[in-house]
Design a protein around this nucleic acid. Sequence first.
DNA 1: AAACATCTTGATCGAATGACCAACTCGGGC
DNA 2: GCCCGAGTTGGTCATTCGATCAAGATGTTT
Lengths: 210, 210
Amino acid sequence: MARIPVAQRRRDFIDAAVEVIATHGIDGATTRRIAEQAQANVAMLHYCYDSKEDLFADVYEHIAGRFREVIEQSDPHTTVLETAQSILRGVMESYFESPAFGATTIELISWARRQHGDRGIAVYDQAMTIGLDVLRRVAAEEGVGTEVVDDIPYVIGALADGFAINYLTYGDRTAARTQMEITSGVLHSWLSERLHVAGKRSPRKQASRA
Amino acid sequence: MARIPVAQRRRDFIDAAVEVIATHGIDGATTRRIAEQAQANVAMLHYCYDSKEDLFADVYEHIAGRFREVIEQSDPHTTVLETAQSILRGVMESYFESPAFGATTIELISWARRQHGDRGIAVYDQAMTIGLDVLRRVAAEEGVGTEVVDDIPYVIGALADGFAINYLTYGDRTAARTQMEITSGVLHSWLSERLHVAGKRSPRKQASRA
DNA sequence: AAACATCTTGATCGAATGACCAACTCGGGC
DNA sequence: GCCCGAGTTGGTCATTCGATCAAGATGTTT
């Protein structure tokens, strides 16, 4: 009943997997649970994906893509400080809007860590790299040295992850809103101080630009 | 062969469990793997613990206790700034010294989150509470209002967790040392600014003290 | 309406898991 | 010396896992 094309089914399975992973963890995300969440059959899942591993690869890609969107969306901002703030805020907002997305991200990172070395680091590393690219671009236009911005992605990542773990643990949306402000303030304090110090040592070397 | 008293066996199983959880995750930590790591038998494990759940409860307590030690060890420091720095540094150092401890902590927190509500939050919440107690005590002696320190444990926790995830993901000890410095600097920037502002609004109300 | 590809399902397989048990073996107290 | 309890072990159980299959249902093309 209700015949659904494979492409749409795959998307349903990915969404279902995100939900189940968030609720039961990576290892608790069994094919049966995912199938049930997607209102489908275990056999149906294997009709769309050769193996559970293949489905998870798509989930991985899905999460990574969503990060890419959030980060690149913060591109048009003018200064390094504003851009960094925008990225951090965007990521935290994503976690806030969809706890399942946040929880699954943490689960995937933990899962990736276990698979020694290899491709495992992908999600984390990809987000870091994209963030760094965006910041470097803005920094170049602003005339800020790369050595100043190279540490920023780590700090943003650490603050965002720390916020996520706290929010996901307590699940308190009211407290989370406050903590987003605090977290944002922490980045602001550190970064403005850092940019100020760096600015003094090497006063604006304006980039050539229209 | 080599008969070992139950008490010692239990400790061995706890240590083994921490190691296995760090490597294979909570759900990957099977009784057989834990037994093997402890150079024992699956039946032996059930001789020491009625169930896997009971063993994990002890692991939970073990981790929580270690956190307690690290945080309380940072008590004797004089100022709020120094104390906060010392706690953050102590926690990060713990993760750095024993990645298994760090990884297991993250795993346990994630695991706790899944068991909806209940006692799950224990490890995280306990560490937060202890940290807050220590800081409040120091703040009282220093004459700093509690409203200023109440947010500090969250920031310390977030920074420490963020550092842990990054370090555990990449496993780069050299990079980790640098990031510990950066992370420490972030806390310093935020906290000194915050204490300065708060100090201006309500200039020292010296606590009576020898 | 016949033929065909696409989707859907219940049943079943081997492997791994947590738990349990009956039997064995030490080692100190009587 | 013998004996009783603490420690130890291999083997077995039901359950759940990912995966596969054969067969059925549905929609489209001719």
